[in-house]
Measured scan of single mutants.
Amino acid sequence: PKDEAKKKVKEAIKRGDEETAKRIAKKYNLDWDDAKREADEER
């Protein structure tokens, strides 16, 4: 599900692992900028 994928993307971003985050986002066709902004807001 997309929500689960987005959570994984945000967790990867918070760990500083943007490569993984981008790969997950691409795989699930998520909006990378959107997920990154959300992760930054939660930090």
Rank of each mutant, 00 (worst) to 15 (best):
E42S: 08
I13R: 01
R37P: 03
K10V: 14
E11W: 04
I13N: 01
W32C: 02
K14H: 12
K14R: 13
E19D: 11
A12K: 02
E11Y: 04
D33Y: 08
I13E: 00
T20S: 08
K8D: 06
V9W: 05
V9T: 02
K8Y: 12
N29S: 09
E18Y: 15
D34F: 08
K22D: 02
K26H: 12
R37L: 09
D3E: 14
D31E: 06
D34K: 09
E42Q: 07
E38K: 03
D17M: 04
A25N: 01
I24S: 01
R23W: 11
E41W: 10
K36D: 03
K10Q: 12
E19Y: 07
A35P: 02
D3V: 09
A12T: 02
K8V: 09
K26T: 10
A21T: 00
A5L: 08
A21E: 00
K7Y: 11
K27G: 03
K2M: 14
E4L: 13
E42T: 08
K7S: 09
W32P: 02
L30R: 00
K14V: 08
D3I: 09
R37T: 06
A21I: 00
N29I: 03
E18T: 10
E4D: 12
R43P: 11
I24P: 01
D33A: 11
E19I: 09
D40W: 12
D17C: 10
W32I: 07
R37A: 10
K7L: 10
V9Y: 05
Y28W: 13
A21F: 00
Y28T: 01
K2S: 12
D31W: 02
R23D: 11
K8A: 15
A35V: 15
E38I: 04
D3P: 05
K36W: 12
K22N: 03
V9A: 04
I13D: 00
E18K: 05
K10D: 04
E4I: 13
D3N: 10
E11A: 09
R23L: 14
D33G: 08
E11K: 03
V9D: 01
N29T: 03
E41F: 11
E41D: 11
E18V: 14
T20I: 07
D40T: 10
E11T: 04
